[in-house]
Amino acid sequence: KLETFPLDVLVNTAAEDLPRGVDPSRKENHLSDEDFKAVFGMTRSAFANLPLWKQQNLKKEKGLF
């Protein structure tokens, strides 16, 4: 399991300012399950079932792209 970080560490943070080991294209993977659901309004599995373009739009909207 990946290390999780608080939302404010990941949202609207440039790649070079992210904690070590965080993939800038997969910031959402480093949210706790609770934060993930609070941000996206759905579970990880529901998010994973969305088309890629919709996932990317949601990530942009939430500052996690």
Rank of each mutant, 00 (worst) to 15 (best):
K60G: 05
S45N: 14
K62P: 00
L10P: 03
G41I: 02
G21W: 07
P24D: 06
F36K: 00
P6F: 02
D33E: 12
L2K: 11
N29M: 15
A14G: 09
Q56L: 12
G21M: 07
K37H: 14
N57C: 15
N49P: 01
G21L: 06
M42C: 07
P51L: 01
S32Y: 02
P19F: 02
H30A: 07
P51M: 01
K27W: 05
R26K: 11
V11K: 10
V22S: 03
D35T: 06
N29S: 11
D17R: 10
E61V: 09
D8Q: 11
K54Q: 15
E34I: 10
A38M: 14
L58R: 02
L10K: 02
K59Q: 03
F47I: 00
Q56N: 14
K37L: 15
K27T: 09
E28S: 03
K37R: 13
K37N: 14
N12C: 14
V9D: 06
N57A: 14
R44M: 05
P24N: 05
D17G: 08
N57S: 14
T4V: 13
L10W: 01
L31Y: 01
L2G: 09
E34T: 09
R20F: 14
L52R: 10
F40G: 00
V11W: 05
W53R: 08
M42S: 01
P51Y: 01
V11C: 09
E3Y: 06
D17H: 10
E16V: 11
E34G: 08
W53D: 11
K27N: 04
S32M: 03
N49D: 15
L50K: 01
D17L: 11
N57G: 10
D33K: 03
L18T: 05
T13I: 11
K60M: 12
D35Y: 01
P24S: 07
D8T: 10
A15K: 12
S25K: 13
G41M: 08
R20P: 15
F36Y: 01
W53P: 07
G63K: 06
P19A: 04
E3K: 11
D17V: 07
G41L: 07
S45G: 12
K59D: 00
P51Q: 02
T13C: 12
D33Y: 04
K62R: 08
F36T: 00
Q56A: 14
F65M: 15
L2W: 15
F65P: 06
E34V: 09
T13L: 11
A14S: 12
G63Y: 05
D8V: 09
S32G: 06
L2A: 13
A48P: 00
E28F: 03
K1V: 14
L52Y: 13
K60S: 09
F65K: 08
E3D: 11
A38H: 12
F65E: 15
P24R: 07
V22Q: 02
F5V: 06
R44P: 06
L50H: 01
K59N: 02
N57K: 14
F47W: 07
G63Q: 05
S45K: 12
N29W: 12
L7I: 12
E61C: 11
P6N: 04
A14C: 14
G21C: 10
R26T: 08
L52W: 12
S32I: 03
E61A: 11
V39Y: 06
L31F: 02
A38Q: 13
A15G: 09
E16W: 01
Q55A: 04
F65I: 13
H30L: 06
T43L: 08
F5W: 11
K54M: 13
G63H: 05
